[in-house]
Design a protein around this nucleic acid. Structure first.
Lengths: 336, 336
DNA sequence: TTGTACGCGTTATCAA
DNA sequence: TTGATAACGCGTACAA
């Protein structure tokens, strides 16, 4: 049997109330001598507080839940790290849940988190399917989302990465280098930020007096193989000197394809990725990419969520996070 | 205020006992009509059980804690995935903690897990420093470790990857290809499996009548840069046709170095990694490596730990997990 | 077939 | 300066 407060109290000949005070540091009114005796007993007996019991009383668990779609993806683990760092800093624990790209698991975890009485929940969904989730939020648990449309009606905090601006920065960089025929190889268009990026692509071109041409847009999946296969099947439109991809995986696929075709990157073809994952940093050549500052996103998500938890107001909050271009080796001036 | 069992009971004009039975499926003795009425109310009111209160009674949380050193490392996330899959399968939750390569955090999480009354704990430590941790285990929480020496005196379950055999397989592969001068570039030697691998290296050579020579062993760190810098500084002993590295990161470092030196891999130099992480699968060329089946390890860790939790016997259990060679593009016959 | 009452370990209030 | 006691929400004998 685990040693409890009662045990310590009995052992020291004091009441549980006194022990509780000491454990929680609210012991200005406890005699130094008693305090020491109790502290010793705690150390001696290896007493550890039962946070279950504590939470029953205090009505909070000092824990927030974080649901991510894929723990193998550095994009999400970056967010997790940021969230974790901030949580610890604020005296909270983070319960990390890997939904594994499955709605079923996501909902199951959501439920579990609520059963565990977490103080708040952060959901990073990879897909757009929120109806069932909303149902669960009749319960008044503050929650935060990343990069979601307003389909979440009752969210507390929404943190958005500025995809529009990110795309603009990438295109502007290519244009500055002298590129004019720039392909945009996008991933699944079901994600809402697809539109933002597309707008960024178009607007950046137009601002530089380069006409937008539909045939320069390709669509595959957010994966190495998806991009590779697409290029293998469709090739490049003659004259294309640069590709901007939906994420780093796709950029890697494009890179591999170019290699297999004997196309030199960046001399003959410039490639830009999105996300600044580890893949863009270790490939050869290293890939120029657009950093979303995931770590920062994680921090902000927790920070703002905790504010909501404490303030307990019901206003919705939207925070926008800027992106920045990471210059590496996969972009260069086009050949003349 | 959250709706409780009491609320549901009052609403349905029954007692909490009845509601409890229904919630827990122990309702053979409840009239069908009442059951339905209660179930409806639960659905209607959005009642969610309070697992804190439940755990206080049942003395278990159906949760196990997993502490890993680095959530950014696919080696550990693979383990996590395996552990998670098995945990879910067995009706448990997994509380994942990222110790971030820090003893302090590791201990802090350990404590938190015990406060949260988890039913068992799995610790994947990256370094050998257990003294403080042992102290914490006076408390009788079953726990499991991966790849540890016996310095954990009171562990319940230990799962070991067969590093000796893994190394042997790698070396044998190279020897079969015709290599004779094989360098072993190891990482930090503080980890206990260093010895196992070294033994595997030596024995594999000796079994093939190739003398072991100390100068063919280099020591750096388990990182891309570590391996690169080592090779940059020391170069290769003339005649070396193959390198086996401590992990995939190091193999990647070796690969990059060879590239920069104009050494063709695998024609002029064969390289083998260890761990079969994503890096060995996406590099160019892809790296032949030794797979430790991390996912399986995670599964086994949870499976055996749960057995211990249920059986509650105090015998220690050691499980060994085999490795296998993953043939890719970085190994070939040596040039004549 | 359903309800009562107690205990789980803690905190907070108020009295001593 | 310390202690007694009532919650917190649930599960389980045992009683009705």
């Amino acid at each position: 049997m685990r040693v409890t407060m009662k045990d310590i109290a009995k052992l020291c000949g004091v009441s549980v109330a006194t022990v509780s005070k000491i454990v929680n540091g609210k012991c200005d009114d406890v005699r130094e001598e008693t305090k020491e005796r109790v502290l010793n007993a705690i150390e001696e007996e290896g007493y550890i507080i039962n946070s279950l019991a504590r939470s029953m009383k205090t009505k909070n668990t000092k824990t927030i839940g974080l649901i991510i779609p894929d723990i193998q993806n550095t994009y999400y683990t970056d967010i997790s790290r940021g969230a974790e760092d901030m949580a610890i800093k604020m005296g909270y624990s983070l319960f990390l849940c890997n939904a594994d790209e499955s709605v079923k698991k996501e909902i199951s975890y959501l439920r579990k988190l609520m059963e565990k009485q977490v103080d708040g929940i952060i959901i990073i969904s990879s897909l757009e399917r929120d109806i069932e989730i909303e149902k669960l939020f009749k319960i008044n648990v503050p929650f935060a989302v990343l990069n979601r449309t307003t389909r979440y009606k009752d969210y507390s905090v929404r943190v958005d990465v500025d995809n529009y601006e990110g795309m603009q920065k990438g295109i502007q960089h290519l244009i500055n280098l002298g590129h004019k025929k720039i392909m945009y190889l996008q991933g699944e268009t079901s994600l809402f930020f697809g539109k933002e990026r597309m707008d960024g692509y178009k607007d950046a071109l137009l601002e530089n007096n380069i006409p937008y041409r539909e045939e320069f847009v390709g669509t595959s999946t957010f994966s190495v193989g998806g991009a590779y296969d697409y290029l293998n099947q469709h090739g490049l439109i003659p004259g294309t000197t640069a590709i901007i991809c939906g994420n780093d995986n796709m950029a890697l696929g494009a890179l591999n394809w170019a290699k297999d075709q004997g196309i030199d990157v960046p001399q003959e073809l410039s490639i830009i990725g999105f996300d600044d994952t580890i893949f863009s940093a270790i490939s050869v050549p290293k890939i120029t990419t657009i950093n979303q500052n995931c770590h920062k996103c994680g921090e902000i998500l927790v920070e703002e969520l905790l504010k909501k938890i404490h303030e307990n107001n019901r206003e919705q909050l939207i925070v926008s996070v800027p992106t920045h271009l990471v210059l590496r080796q996969s972009t260069a001036k086009p050949q003349v």
